[in-house]
Design a binder for these strands. Structure first.
Length: 350
DNA sequence: CCTGAATCTTAGCTGTTCAA
DNA sequence: TTGAACAGCTAAGATTCAGG
């Protein structure tokens, strides 16, 4: 039998057997288990060139999974259960890729699993499809780096502003200058913190609440400037700095140990840094003690965007230490990890 | 039990950085 | 200057929960 006939044979057997994509098939089932080569052949034959429209990511992914079901002779399930892999019976996952950055979340690459990688051309068409074993895919992982992120949730938006911790952490609260009119005009926000000019969390709160209601144009599409930059600038000015540089380091305003977040959706992305982490930061200061992640103050602005205008609606200010007392951490998986595989540009053509 | 809202977990694109 | 590596982000699918 040639590959064409074998492929048709498997698909017909699956159709007749009425099994679902969740029913287990043994690797040595000669009627139902589709070997890798045939799997790739069938999918290319049935899906190559298929027009799917310009859909949002998740919808596109779902539509493609439905097409995969039909191509292989399975009924389309009403929803795709969150199993690992997504197609347990045939032991494969699908990845639809317009870009070359293939990402796998919260799991290792499984050596024996098949990875169905589907090329997307100009957002609207299916291109070539490659089926790799996990052990082959793993070869594209050059560094083994897992990118992690912490996430929390902004819930019960009620008050326009909330000072979540009314005093700073014990480690640093004796170093604040309690005089609220410290002149920061001669300092830069990226300078190291100093006792003379270090504001208390409460006085930062008092200065920043005046920003609530402020609007600015959403320059997100602009090359250089973005929403975060605009907020950063507003904060620097309202604290009394004349300059508003940002060197991209943590925390945003090193001089005040202040990290700034602009939220327009309820998911707070904390990136690699866990706010209540007690490890020490490499920041020089004249306090005589090292500052820790959890000593950093977090200013979280909630904003609405309408017609290209960003309006700051709420302010939350907390020490890192108390952060999770107000913003519940996603508990399902406290840390989310992903591995990113850069696919070479000739991936689909080889 | 059913339905809609809330919550959680991604899908994968895009921006940034840094080394060659 | 370029591209690989990695960090960040939006928002939608799946699941769970609350109210009827």
């Amino acid at each position: 039998m040639d590959i064409e006939a074998k492929s048709a044979f498997y698909v017909e057997n699956i159709r007749k057997s009425k099994i679902s994509i969740y029913d287990n098939i043994s690797y040595d089932d000669s009627k139902l288990w589709i070997p890798r080569e045939e799997l790739e052949y069938i999918l290319n034959k049935k899906l190559y060139g298929l027009s799917i429209g310009d859909l949002p990511l998740r919808t596109r992914s779902k539509v493609i999974k439905e097409s995969v079901c039909r191509a292989l002779g399975y009924d389309v399930p009403s929803s795709f259960t969150k199993t690992q892999p997504r197609f347990p019976g045939q032991d494969f996952d699908t990845y639809s890729q317009k870009s070359n950055n293939l990402q796998i979340w919260n799991e290792e690459i499984s050596p024996s699993r098949r990875y169905v990688i589907i090329q997307i051309i100009d957002n609207t068409r299916i291109g070539r499809i490659k089926v790799l074993l996990g052990e082959e895919l793993a070869a594209y992982d050059k560094t083994g780096t897992l990118t992690t992120k912490y996430q929390a949730r902004l819930t019960s938006v009620k008050d326009k502003s909330e000072l979540i911790s009314s005093v700073d952490t014990e480690r640093i609260n004796t170093f604040v200058n309690s005089f609220p009119y410290v002149n920061l005009g001669e300092l830069r926000p990226v300078d190291n913190p100093s006792k003379k000019s270090f504001l208390s969390i409460r006085s930062i709160f008092d200065k920043l609440t005046s920003l609530i209601g402020t609007s600015f144009a959403d320059l997100g599409f602009d090359q250089e400037r973005n929403r975060g930059f605009e907020l950063h600038k507003l904060i620097c000015l309202s604290l009394g700095y004349k300059s508003y540089e940002d060197n991209g380091q943590f925390p945003d305003l090193k001089n005040q140990l202040l990290e700034v977040k602009l939220q327009t959706s309820p998911t707070i992305d904390l990136g690699l840094i866990c706010p209540d982490d007690t490890s020490e930061l490499d920041i020089k200061n004249d306090f005589g003690v090292k500052v820790r992640h959890c000593d950093v103050r977090y200013a979280l602005f909630y904003a609405s965007i309408r017609d290209g205008i960003v309006t700051l609606t709420n302010l939350y200010l907390s020490s890192g230490e108390k952060f999770f007392s107000r913003f519940p951490r996603f508990e399902g998986k406290i840390v989310n990890k992903k591995i990113q595989l850069p696919l070479p540009s000739n991936f689909f053509s080889s």
